[in-house]
Simulated scan of single mutants.
Amino acid sequence: MSEELEGKHGVQSLEVGMAILRAMAAGKRSMMLKDIAIAASMPPSKAHRYLVSLIRSGLVEQDRLTSRYDLGPFALNLGLVALDRIDRIRLGLAAITDLRDVTNETTSLAVWSDDGPVVVRWERPRRPITVNVVTGTSLSLLSSAAGRVFAAWLPERQTEALLLKEIEAGKAPGVASLAQARAVLAEVREQGAAILSRGYFARGVEAAAAPVFNFKNEITMSIALVGVEGSMDLTPGSPTLDELRRATHELSLRLGASADTA
């Protein structure tokens, strides 16, 4: 069978294994082999062969005392990860919409990718002159507010290579070394937000961003306010910044972050 044909037909053994997992998930409790076989519409002997492999992978586990099967630790981990990813985006979209309505400023939501921060959604305010943020835009770690937020709260081992690349390319005015970048990011952590009224990667634009934390108290998203330079009040304690911090704090709490982290 050619690779092209295999690609179209998929992997049958994987599909059979998934049928067993779906049957177990639908059962909502640990199950005996015969019950799994009936639910998955296959002979018990066939179901048992697949269950052996699923146990080895961590997707299924068996109670030695009762011989009943249940979803394993890896399956539970996949569920938690999927829940975190789905819920955080949905809640994040609602948060930036509400923040847009309160501030009447452009709002955006960014997440971390292998290539750094990326914009996943933005909301336009009701005013004649606005700043458009393109969905899918990759953001600089040093010359964007959302990028500085991720760089400030992510472990440096995840950001150091990108930081050095931007420093060498001269993308961040006034930041010529990793030591200077660390000082900038330390100030961001101290303020609890990144504020860029000058030196933004897009000319004539200013922005402020704050972190959103998950149930592990790790940064999972960033919310930003973006406007025409000089149009927003970004002074410490301004209503605009207060609303940004309120939005990210409330969203962090909803995602399970502890109150002192959020």
Rank of each mutant, 00 (worst) to 15 (best):
E243L: 14
R126Y: 08
A151N: 06
A183N: 12
M232W: 07
P239E: 08
L139D: 00
A161N: 04
N214P: 07
E229Q: 15
L163Q: 01
E206G: 03
E229S: 07
S177P: 05
K216R: 15
R245Y: 09
A181W: 09
L163I: 01
S258E: 13
S258L: 09
N214H: 05
G227D: 07
T159V: 13
A152V: 06
K216G: 03
A210M: 08
I167P: 13
D242R: 14
N132Q: 14
H249E: 01
F150K: 03
A193F: 02
T135V: 14
Y200V: 05
T130H: 04
A247H: 03
F215M: 11
P211C: 09
P128R: 09
E229M: 13
A208N: 09
T220D: 03
V149F: 02
P155N: 07
S140L: 12
I223Y: 13
L141V: 01
R198W: 02
L241P: 00
S144T: 15
R189H: 13
E166Q: 14
V133F: 09
R148E: 00
A176Q: 05
A210W: 00
G147K: 01
D233W: 09
G199Q: 09
I129E: 11
R246V: 03
D260Y: 11
L244A: 12
L154C: 01
R245C: 08
T261F: 08
A172Q: 02
G170F: 10
G170N: 06
K165S: 15
E160Q: 15
T235N: 04
S138T: 11
V226P: 00
L251R: 04
T261C: 10
A224F: 00
S197D: 11
E218Y: 07
L253C: 07
K216Y: 11
A259G: 00
G256Q: 05
S258R: 14
R127D: 02
T130N: 03
D233Q: 12
L196C: 13
A207D: 05
V228R: 09
F213H: 11
L196G: 04
S177F: 03
R245Q: 08
G136C: 10
G204W: 11
S143Y: 07
G170M: 03
T130L: 07
A207C: 14
F150W: 01
D242M: 10
W153R: 10
R189N: 11
E156A: 10
V212M: 10
